[in-house]
Design a protein around this nucleic acid. Structure first.
Lengths: 328, 328
DNA sequence: TTTATTCCTGCATACGTATGCAACAAACTC
DNA sequence: GAGTTTGTTGCATACGTATGCAGGAATAAA
């Protein structure tokens, strides 16, 4: 189909060997300025474009980063996607986008990543069995869990410091005089939800403060329904800590539906600081995840590992920032 | 790096030739059931995985679809992304995600797509110069503009019928007794904005109805600011038609900030029917874009063209549906 | 049984690039 | 000027698969 002009064609026109053409396009190879120019001119004239498949076949490497993601609908992850795309492009990498329906990444998705011999993988809003993760380790493919932390430091991960964050939030609400609080968690199998719960409860327990916990699912609808249920079951608590913003918006709307005034009758704190949290309709008090830093940290790690693989992994936790608005 | 088990290894273990191994994995090749089983068993044992690069090198084809997108932050496009990812996966294709900052797709992005010899391309929320588009035509790579329409039927496109939609909206608002209306457009270089404006104005002109037009940019902030400006400049109009939902939400928040009651004092109609439009906080009357059908239509076209290229292109327009809620 | 047909299979080669090796030229050292 | 180092180039080969071709096995037709 494609008119397929090859390095050989360019070589002929430039009056050099195919090897020289190859060297012009290969970072760090030794070519004289003279032949380089001749080759580039010839390439320009013919519209030459190195064949990535031939290249990857022989180098056994690719310029593709696998990005695994579930919750594109959550504005938090939409921004994450945007940032990763931009920054990897700057580094000369393309994005293989793998959307997964399930919380745990499926075999077929892993196969895709391995088939394309991706240079690295970012897994966001999804988890992975240890066995599957081992596949990547075995193939020396660096892997980062973004905004997820797997047990026992088996894999590299980048999160914000959820424990500290939720402790701060608990202390803040206590200082505001909240007594009976409600905690609404997200997907209870995720480290983010677990840690946000842990830090929050830890502080409240220390202060012998009573609270109730409800499990939800990190979606607006989940937050809305959970809040509705709560309002049926008990009298209005003095504060809500909701494990992410998008759920918190659902909680707010449910409260308003029931004519509960915020922040007079109850307070609401979210987590993430998505754009919508600052909208006049909500003005949500929340915890800002340092997305920019988290993404940079992730990319730096991956680029380092791509350059020379160590397999060394840590759990990176970056501090976020409390954002006080009008729901508290 | 990778322990790289090849077809040759499998062949040896299975006691057949490399060609036979290849044929087992090649759709439509002729292999006996017996050798097929022996090969698959051997492959299983060795953990064989056909090398996509070697395959693409020789077939000059790929199983990659390029998805070009700008507005991931807009929930409409987030859903579009999700649907395309799911459906292409079902068809055995992977997604090369190309995020573009600019309205017009840049050369480097096109290069990426051509380098990977993508089987097809979907361009969403972005445009492309004719010259660039020709590159794809020249290489027989099918291309669809999704939710964008380029002039003169040069390229295939899939949209909802924006003209009919905006006509209906105008008629609806007239029937509701709206007299002085305001139209807030999105990015004025996009076909969606242009056509939504055209249909709306056409009907109002027919009825000799006065209206004012403001340009904005398809974002929440844009909608908010524009509405704020409008409220300073003139008295509250009897209705707003806003070219997409996310802007409409900004308009609503701005109106509320100014204590303008909706729908008593003024009415607001959006476009897209994103999830948020149905949230209790907004209950936005809008026009539903038939995303599911639009995506299916796009995928069907691409799959057909991949199977046998014709280069035939049309502008497909699918009818949407009016959704009446509480802002009118 | 013989012949014709269908179905499989292996051999050999091609895809477009990267790279070790040897050859050679140029520059430098003394 | 002889010897040494550095830099550049072409040759030949390898990467792992797909595929045309011819030969062989198996089956059908006679």
């Amino acid at each position: 189909m494609r008119e397929t002009v090859t390095a050989k064609d360019v070589a002929k026109l430039a009056g050099v060997s195919q090897s020289s053409v190859s060297r012009v396009y290969f970072e760090g190879a030794s070519v004289s300025e003279k032949t380089k120019k001749r080759v580039l001119d010839a390439a320009e004239e013919l519209g030459y474009r190195p064949n990535v498949y031939a290249r990857s076949l022989i180098t056994n490497q690719s310029n593709i980063i696998g990005l695994v993601m579930k919750g594109v609908q959550n504005p938090f992850y939409a921004e994450v996607l945007k940032r990763f795309s931009s920054i990897f492009k700057q580094h000369g990498y393309s994005i293989l986008f793998v959307y997964t329906n399930n919380d745990e990444i499926q075999k077929e998705d892993v196969d895709t990543l391995l088939n394309y011999n991706v240079a690295g993988v970012v897994v966001t809003d999804a988890t992975m069995s240890l066995a599957v993760g081992e596949e990547f380790v075995k193939n020396h493919i660096p892997l980062v869990f973004f905004n997820r932390k797997l047990g026992m430091g088996e894999f590299h991960s980048v999160c914000c410091n959820n424990l500290n964050a939720s402790r701060s939030i608990a202390q803040y609400l206590l200082s505001k005089g909240a007594t009976d609080m409600v905690l609404i968690t997200g997907n209870e199998h995720t480290s983010t939800s677990i840690e946000r719960e842990k830090g929050f409860c830890e502080v409240l327990d220390q202060h012998k403060n009573d609270y109730r916990k409800y499990n939800s699912n990190y979606t607006y609808e989940g937050g809305y329904r959970t809040a509705m249920t709560i309002l049926e079951e008990m009298r209005v608590p003095s504060a809500f800590f909701v494990a992410n913003d998008i759920m918190a918006l659902g909680v707010i709307d449910a409260l308003r539906k029931n004519n509960v005034r915020i922040p007079q009758d109850t307070k609401v704190v979210g987590f993430d600081n998505i754009d919508m949290a600052s909208w006049p309709a909500y003005e949500l008090t929340t915890w800002e995840q340092p997305i920019k830093e988290m993404v940079e940290e992730t990319v730096n790690y991956l680029m380092d590992e791509v350059t020379s693989y160590t397999g060394f992994s840590r759990n990176i936790e970056i501090e976020g920032k409390f954002i006080e608005r009008n729901t508290t």
